[in-house]
Amino acid sequence: MVNILIIIAISITLLSIAVSMLRFILGPSPVDRVIAFDVMSVSSIALIAFISVVSKRVIYMDVALVYGILGFLGVIVVARYLEKGM
């Protein structure tokens, strides 16, 4: 029963990542693309957490944490680059 609910949640999250991907492709300025990347990486944290609950492995939560840290760092680095150059 609960797995069905989680799978519904996974499909909605995947849909939201797809919509963000649309903005990532369309986005007129680089900042728009980076925002889309940020939203996608935060959604992916939730997605990895869902997957870890469905497959009942706690180790995937660590993957989610590392993924979040890397996404955050990537956004910060690109923003610094846009603002001040290398």
């Binding site: 989680i6 949640a9 939201s16 939730a46």
Partner: peptide, 23 residues
């Protein structure tokens, strides 16, 4: 478990709303 699943679905709906707003 069912309450938890429903809250998780609500969260994913907010994620979807966020990306529609982004679009």
């Amino acid at each position: 478990e069912i309450i938890g699943g429903s809250i998780a679905i609500a969260g994913s709906i907010f994620l979807l709303l966020g990306s529609i707003g982004l679009y």
